[in-house]
Amino acid sequence: MKPPAFAYAKARALDHAIELLGVDGARLLAGGQSLIATLNMRLSSPSLLVDINGIGGLEGIALRDGRLEIGALVRHVQAERSAEIARHAPLIARAMPHIGHAAIRNRGTLGGSIAFADPAAELPACLVALGGEVEIAGPEGRRTVAADDFFKDLFETALGPRDVLTAIRVPAATADTRVGFAELARRHGDYAMVGLAAAARADGKAPKDPRLVYFGVGTTPVRARKAEAALAGGSLDQAVAALAQDLAPQDDVQATAAVKTHLAGVLLRRVAQQLEAA
């Protein structure tokens, strides 16, 4: 179980990385906590790995214009301990303890989690729930893609082969921001069987503009739009019932589609309580 042969280059700067990614079969290496495992298993055979870990300026966490910007190379452990994230992006703060284990969190990056886009991962769902966006640098320059448009299909995103994800941005939490997070994983740190990241605004009884984003139930993070509408209308029961239409999970080795849909309903009830809590 050794990786196939590939070349390695350490990018000095973003432009350099983008240039190196022009090599046919090149792949970007960030934290490597998913990529190197797939290389070891020979599930992927890039010609060149472009290591962006040495590029400066991608590990910051900063509030700008009412948005919290998190650099692509921010490690999970840094995010977990970040006062800025706890204050301005409490949903991400709640998700962090569920991600991987100590050694993985020391090395894995937030940008890598988003770019790898594992459908059972926490952060892509959080990004969509928060209505965040992804900052991308590519051969044509920089662009911003809304999280809703970023996750295309199983392990497929809006990133092109020469693109580098440089940061994610989420609206900073305000006094009326409500978030909820819950996941069911068989063991601590495992990818979720089913998980739910949710955000809303407090508005009297029912949460306003709730965004309910499931993970582990599809090929991408899945917004449960009918359930969102029902929840906004004040009916949790209808919201749970609507999940049967919103979600179309596939059977996998952990659970059948029916079990996942049931669990999604349980999570919705639990997360709805969190959304109500001040």
Partner: peptide, 23 residues
């Protein structure tokens, strides 16, 4: 877990769940 064709579906440590400290 095997399928009806005799393929092991979870032959890795991410999918075959061994007991870890937390549980």
């Amino acid at each position: 877990l095997y399928d009806e064709r005799g393929q092991l579906l979870n032959g890795n440590m991410a999918d075959y769940l061994v007991p870890m400290a937390c549980e």
